[in-house]
């Protein structure tokens, strides 16, 4: 398995790139702090803020890496090496998830400090955050490969990420919305992340029980990884 050297290389090369720092670290933390300052008691927003952090951190990191690598042709270094497309995609997804875990852990620590009630289940919370980061990272890799011109990747990511913040129930509970709106949310991993973390942090869920939301995040991770491998096959 050549996954570990690729992960180490990615962290050294892309951790401090402007795309990773601005959209992946600064935006989610400032966004969370803005809500904390505005509302004070942020228990009901905690699942959404942690999910938003994970979403932006993972997708920004993998997009930043793939934009650079596709433009500078360093991605072709990986393609020329005797490793499978699956291994390349797995490494990209794992390193994106690792970066996302770091950022969402910081967000969780800040949010936890301002929560009134104790965390309902730490093990489920950690599992939920892990699966969410994997699913978002895989989504980011897929979009970064599917967009033909790498310069446009960040724009397309925002076209997808920003609506997801609203359709997932991260800001306002899904119970307030009509069924068709909820149905839109169900096609993105963000909704499952918010619902899983709502249950693990607060002990209740709005629409989807953790019995479904957690495995569905794993399913989406695998689905986006398969789609990414297919994209690579089409591109090269």
């Amino acid at each position: 398995m050549k996954v570990v050297p690729i992960i180490v290389k990615e962290l050294k090369e892309y951790m401090f790139k402007p795309g990773s720092i601005s959209w992946g670290l600064v935006f989610p933390l400032v966004f969370s702090l803005a809500f904390i300052v505005r509302f004070g008691d942020i228990d009901h927003l905690a699942p959404g803020l942690v999910s938003i952090s994970a979403l932006f951190a993972t997708t920004s990191f993998v997009a930043s890496s793939l934009i650079f690598e596709r433009r500078l042709k360093t991605f072709e270094r990986l393609l020329l090496a005797p490793i499978s497309y699956g291994e390349i995609i797995l490494a990209k997804v794992l390193v994106g998830a690792l970066f996302g875990l770091m950022v969402s852990a910081i967000t969780l620590a800040i949010v936890r400090y301002f929560m009134v009630y104790p965390v309902w289940s730490w093990p489920l919370t950690l599992l939920g955050i892990l699966l969410a980061n994997l699913a978002f990272s895989a989504l980011g890799v897929y979009i970064s490969l599917a967009v033909e011109n790498p310069i446009n990747v960040m724009t397309w990511l925002n076209v997808i990420r920003l609506p997801m913040m609203f359709t997932s129930g991260a800001i306002a509970s899904l119970t307030l919305f009509p069924k068709w709106f909820i149905a839109i949310g169900l096609i993105t991993p963000m909704t499952y992340s918010v619902e899983a973390l709502r249950y693990s942090l607060l002990g209740y869920y709005d629409v989807i029980a953790p019995l479904y939301s957690l495995p569905l995040m794993l399913f989406m991770t695998l689905l986006f990884m398969l789609l990414s491998v297919r994209s690579l096959r089409r591109m090269y």
């Binding site: 290389k9 050294k12 090369e13 401090f16 500078l72 360093t74 072709e76 270094r77």
Partner: peptide
């Protein structure tokens, strides 16, 4: 390749 495509933030040895 026609471009020197290695990783900028890594040293030559890395």
């Amino acid at each position: 390749q026609d471009v020197s495509n290695l990783y900028d933030e890594l040293t030559v040895e890395e």
